[in-house]
Design a binder for these strands. Structure first.
Length: 581
RNA sequence: GCCCCGUUAGCUCAGUCGGAUAGAGCGCUGGAUUCCUAAUCCAGAGGCCAUAGGUUCAAAUCCUGUACGGGGCACCA
């Protein structure tokens, strides 16, 4: 309908003002939804926009356009109001068109046809050194909802988890696991200061013992240092433990390391899966460092590319990237004086690899504490002659958990954090997903645990689900075949609330498109709350199962449309729409 | 010091491309159930949209300054 009005207005403007010395075509014609019923359904501000360039009174222009506008069976009335708005009034029948559309498209209502564009969303990517905690939950939900949303908007979406399985932290993980393993044989051994403290390594150590029995245990002489509590307090002690195990066990050290990584990735994957988050790609950081038969690794190739573009120099034994020439605060080290690569080197190579895989959009979902990181990554892509417009970064702010009105204290040190699994077990996956996504991503979020568990209208998720269940209940009590409702007389739906419901249903596809384009899935939550609210109000003011068959059928048809849209919206959020509650 | 994000009702927050009288929930006050799920609804009170300028026919929305709050600025990952 909006498109039709736009087209008509364009034509009228062309006819009226073709002789004027300005280019009418360059003005966009906006059609807005009106809030106030007295203003009609739609409005255009074009007369106000044109007033200045034409040097005329906006009301006169609006009247002129109105005179030339042809009303028909859909657009029944045109009015000029206020400072020069042109208001359009739609017929009852044209409001009902949306119900037939929903009826035909069902689950597909709101989704666009494929646009043949590929998008990569990288998210979560937490270090594989321990289970996910609640801090990861928000990014996890956001990424998975954005993936569904973009899929709905016609993109071909890949969801990727970048596994930081390279470097010192993996050795520390291996050492920590080995200590848990050694504790099985000698409980005088204690976890060392820089090791991973969490108890999650204990069951993994038991699994390790199943595989290797006591073969990985060390001789008494090697254990001397480990049993000396004074030296353990030292920050660098972890390195000497790694050295000891590595020199005594040789390749078995690598076995321990790989075993630890695999077990923890299994843990992470299981938690994500229970949380409705499913990455279809897992990208290993260490794969960036493989060099097959003498050829350069991906990281070396990336550095060489920067080098040949003139962005690399050596200083004090380290390899530097001249990011400051491309907007970063300072230059960055890629390879340290001791020959080790920095995390940033991996990231440069990783991002180049993403580009080379041919995506149209590359979306990173990062914790907001990483925002200072973005100029150097951009600089690296620019220095490698990649189109930096393709790279988008969405920052996710931290979430606080609130219980009984108070912040739940959390410390990532010494393993005192609440895991994602514990959160899910307490409030359910669905509530956790909804509350995480309910708020704009770049805003702090207070996650109220008590509210998430509450079963009342204070809990917006229950409110929405209840609307769906109520409709299901009415439809089932009516004993009518939903498939036969399509021929209902939609002109009978002329109550204010009925018209409003149809208008809101009509906005759904636009909402999905906007949410996808601006990466703002929280809009879906607000939309669904709105829709549910209008429905509940309608439910309380009218009866649906009435004597008059025609009236009943049209009302049930409307309800069936509301039901479908709630279902579609919740499904993007990864939340079930229950038949009964 | 530099860089991000924020400041809207007592509280928690929405607010589309700048559009007509500023939105919701909670809380507060008062109502609705012989009837399709009261897990619901209806009505009322409650606002200098932090602040000072600017752009515009029109600013919560765009631009600049200021104040206040949160976060970030490694040869860590």
């Amino acid at each position: 309908m909006k498109e039709k009005i736009q087209k008509d207005l364009k034509r009228i403007l062309g006819e009226l003002y073709s002789s004027v010395d300005i280019d009418i075509k360059k003005f966009d014609i906006n059609i807005q939804d009106n809030k106030e019923k007295e203003h009609g359904d739609l409005a255009s501000n074009i007369a106000l926009v044109l007033a200045k360039p034409l040097g005329r009174n906006p009301k006169e222009i609006a009247e002129e356009i109105k005179e030339n506008f042809q009303t028909d069976q859909d657009i029944t009335k045109v009015e000029v109001a206020g400072p020069g708005f042109i208001n359009f009034f739609l017929s009852k029948k044209s409001h009902g068109a949306v119900l037939k559309e929903i009826f035909i498209e069902k689950d597909g209502y709101g989704s666009s046809k494929s646009n043949n564009k590929k998008v990569l969303i990288e998210y979560v990517s937490s270090n594989p050194t321990g289970p996910l905690h609640v801090g990861h939950g928000r990014g996890a939900v956001f990424g998975s909802v954005l993936a569904r949303l973009l899929n709905e908007a016609g993109f071909k979406v890949d969801e990727e988890y970048y596994v930081n399985d390279f470097g010192r932290q993996m050795n520390i993980l291996a050492a920590s696991l080995w200590i848990r393993y050694a504790q099985i044989f000698n409980n005088d051994i204690q976890m060392i200061k820089n090791g991973y403290q969490g108890e999650y390594l204990i069951p993994i150590a038991k699994n390790l013992k199943e595989k290797r029995s006591n073969e990985l245990f060390l001789s008494d002489s090697d254990l001397n240092d480990l049993l000396n509590k004074d030296t353990q307090e030292d920050e660098s002690f972890v390195d000497s433990v790694i050295e000891t195990i590595r020199s005594r066990l040789g390749d078995e050290f690598l076995f321990i390391r790989d075993f630890a990584l695999k077990e923890i990735l299994d843990l992470i994957q299981a938690d994500l899966s229970e949380f409705g988050v499913n990455h279809n790609k897992w990208f290993s950081e260490s794969s960036l460092y493989e060099n097959k038969l003498g050829s350069d690794s991906i990281v070396d190739k990336a550095i060489n590319e920067l080098d040949s573009n003139g962005f690399i120099y050596e200083q004090e034994g380290a390899t530097w990237f001249k990011s400051s020439t491309l907007g970063d605060d300072k230059d960055r080290v890629l390879k340290r004086g001791n020959g080790e690569y920095t995390y940033f080197a991996s990231d440069v190579a990783y991002h180049l690899d993403k580009y080379d895989r041919g995506y149209d959009r590359i979306i990173n979902i990062w914790g907001s504490d990483h925002h200072g990181y973005i100029p150097r990554v951009r600089a690296a892509m620019e220095a490698s002659a990649r189109n930096i417009q393709k790279l988008e970064v969405v920052f996710i702010q931290f979430a606080n958990l609130i219980r009984s009105g108070k912040k739940v204290p959390m410390s990532t040190r010494s393993g005192e954090f609440i895991t994602l699994k514990e959160l899910i077990d307490e409030v359910t996956t669905e509530a956790a997903r909804f509350f995480y996504i309910n708020r704009k991503s770049d805003q702090h979020l207070d996650f109220d645990l008590d509210l998430a568990k509450e079963q009342s209208k204070d809990n917006p998720l229950y409110y929405i689900q209840y609307a769906h269940a109520r409709i299901c209940s009415v439809l089932s009590k009516s004993h009518i075949d939903e498939g036969k409702l399509a021929n209902s007389d939609l002109t009978l739906l002329d109550l204010d609330k009925e018209v409003e419901l149809q208008k809101v249903l009509n906005q759904y596809p636009v909402l999905i498109e906007r949410a996808a384009l601006s990466s703002e899935p929280h809009l879906i939550c607000y939309y669904l709350k709105d829709l549910a609210s209008i429905f509940h109000s309608y439910y309380n003011s009218e009866k649906f199962l009435v004597e008059d068959q025609n009236l009943m059928n049209s009302r049930l048809f409307l309800l069936s449309g509301v039901k479908q849209v709630i279902h579609n919206g919740l499904s993007i959020l990864g939340i079930n729409a229950p038949q009964e509650m």
